[in-house]
């Protein structure tokens, strides 16, 4: 959040109120930048207008990759590189390989998913953010509106926020 950006912040103290306020503010033709909350509110992302996440697709792809990697490693070592007769079994003893393949799938899915999540949300160690309001991680719900991206005047935006139940309207 660079200091040149011109934000109006509506501060709410209830999750249901902020959810209603999002609809009310959007009905006035005001574009909402984002809403910041201390905990997830179901339906808020849809109300704000965020697209559905594609994380499940990423997770599936990482899982598939994990499965392929595990199976490739096992078949390379057990069938091609150094085949050994163990208990009279086939070199290609697929049923015995299910446990390790499964663990590989889970491992790749978990780490791939979390890495994708962090990358897509700009989360990394040492990322210094300046919160719009320190109370966001405590008990306040903050609706941020970028004045420059809106045609509605700042004064009107403030009035709409106040009417929608904001307990405070700040600028940043």
């Amino acid at each position: 959040m660079s200091s040149t950006t011109n934000y109006i912040l509506g501060v709410y103290d209830d999750e249901d109120e902020v959810l209603h306020a999002v609809t009310a503010v959007k009905a006035q033709g005001i574009k909402i930048e984002d809403v910041f909350t201390p905990f997830p509110i179901h339906g808020l992302d849809v109300a704000v207008g965020h697209a559905r996440t594609r994380l499940p697709i990423a997770a599936f792809m990482f899982g598939t990759l994990g499965m392929i990697c595990a199976l490739s490693l096992i078949s390379y070592t057990m069938v091609f590189d150094w085949p050994m007769i163990i208990g009279g079994k086939d070199f290609f003893a697929l049923p015995n390989w299910i446990p390790v393949t499964f663990e590989g799938t889970v491992l790749f899915t978990a780490f791939g998913l979390v890495t994708t999540f962090c990358a897509s949300n700009n989360l990394y160690p040492g990322n210094k953010v300046e919160p719009l309001d320190l109370r966001i991680t405590d008990d306040k719900f903050v609706m941020a509106i970028n004045v420059d991206k809106n045609k509605v005047s700042a004064a009107d935006i403030k009035k709409v926020l106040k009417d929608s139940g904001a307990i405070e309207v700040n600028t940043k």
Partner: peptide, 25 residues
């Protein structure tokens, strides 16, 4: 805390991520 802001977009994805992690765990 990785620069967590509590944005609704992050939370929505976070919920999905938790659900998938729960599903594979």
């Amino acid at each position: 805390s990785l620069g967590w802001t509590g944005s609704s977009k992050t939370w929505a994805r976070y919920e999905y991520m938790s659900l998938i992690l729960a599903g594979i765990s």
